[in-house]
């Protein structure tokens, strides 16, 4: 019998409430007011509406999936991105993602499941309510952010698609369209588009795995992977695939994009782990952004990005130096 205790990263009453938490509380109260208004008009709130670019979303907060750490400001979250479909520079996605069309959007579901088909985004999300979770995002390049995401638990969507007993892995693909994504036009790119990612089924069913459609209360900006992306806070950022157009249930383990390019640098699991260095840099520390030039915001990196309580049991008995 497992006794659940408060996760180490959850809000604690021992702490004096800092100002930004207090402001969040006020936002929460206004959210409740909006919810009450929604109850009067059930059609508006009964299920998740499709996210519309730049528009606010209806959601509830999930305090057990939050953190008291300072959030990375919105302006930095939307101007410092790795989204190689739009170029390899950190500011390329913010400059060029506007050319991607995200409405309408559909996702192909296929493979070992009972409900395959091509789903309009709103149908994929339909019966679920949006919630907000504040997660740490740790990039493999040794920087990190704290981002309030809005979306639905991946497990809820997966269950509804009825995976069969043969479904051992989930495979994801990002949109491939060089006309909309200029980074895919480069003839010197070593990426074999589309971008591919994968998860073991038990990882996908973990309570932390999240399908985000928004951040900071609004529909996802395009440079952050609109209209729908994964968020896997215990893994390096590149696992959190953006602008998803395919979800496939597979019996065999999918080979991910980074695994294909540099298997010695990027493994299938890619769990945040300060004990396993990337060949090009140490993973012991990270720069929490925004970082100052003369007061760099260095923090020690935690195993599983501090989410060990939720996910460590997924990897019991595995040699994480081998399965990095």
């Amino acid at each position: 019998m497992l006794i659940k205790s408060r996760p180490s990263w959850a809000l604690s009453h021992r702490h004096v409430t800092p100002e930004h938490i207090y402001l969040n509380r006020r936002r929460f109260m206004s959210g409740v007011a909006a919810g009450a208004a929604g109850l009067a008009m059930p059609g508006l709130l009964s299920a998740a509406a499709a996210p519309v670019q730049g528009e606010p979303l209806n959601f509830t907060r999930s305090p057990q999936f939050s953190t008291e750490e300072e959030k990375t400001p919105f302006k930095d979250v939307i101007r410092y991105n790795n989204f190689y479909e739009f170029g390899t520079g950190k500011d390329d996605p913010a400059k060029y993602a506007e050319s991607m069309s995200v409405d309408p959007w559909s996702v192909i579901v296929d493979g070992e499941c009972g409900k395959p088909g091509t789903y309009a985004l709103e149908d994929l999300l339909q019966p679920h309510d949006y919630e907000e979770r504040v997660y740490r995002l740790r990039c493999v390049e040794a920087w990190s952010m704290v981002i309030p995401w809005v979306g639905v638990p991946l497990a809820d969507v997966v269950k509804r698609l009825e995976p069969t007993s043969k479904a051992k892995y989930l495979y994801f693909e990002t949109l491939e369209d060089p006309e909309q994504m200029r980074g895919q036009q480069s003839i010197f790119s070593t990426i074999d588009w589309p971008y591919r990612e994968g998860l073991r089924m038990d990882e996908a069913m973990n309570e932390l795995a999240f399908l985000a459609v928004g951040l900071y209360g609004k529909a996802l900006p395009k440079q952050n992977g609109a209209p729908i992306r994964l968020v896997l806070p215990w893994k390096y950022g590149f696992k959190s695939i953006k602008s998803i157009v395919r979800i496939r249930f597979q019996e065999s383990r999918p080979k991910t994009t980074w695994e294909r390019i540099a298997p010695s640098e990027y493994g299938f699991y890619a769990n945040v782990n300060p004990e396993v260095d990337h060949p090009r840099w140490s993973q012991k520390r990270e720069r929490r952004l925004p970082s100052g030039l003369f007061s760099p915001n260095w923090i020690e990196t935690e195993k599983f990005n501090g989410y060990g309580e939720q996910v460590a049991n997924l990897y019991k008995g595995m040699d994480l130096r081998k399965f990095y």
Binding site: Y80, K90, R287, P290, S291, G292
Partner: peptide, 15 residues
Amino acid sequence: DMVSGAVGPDPGQTI
């Protein structure tokens, strides 16, 4: 860029 803030949220890396 440093003065204007265009250097971004990770100035050490950019510089």
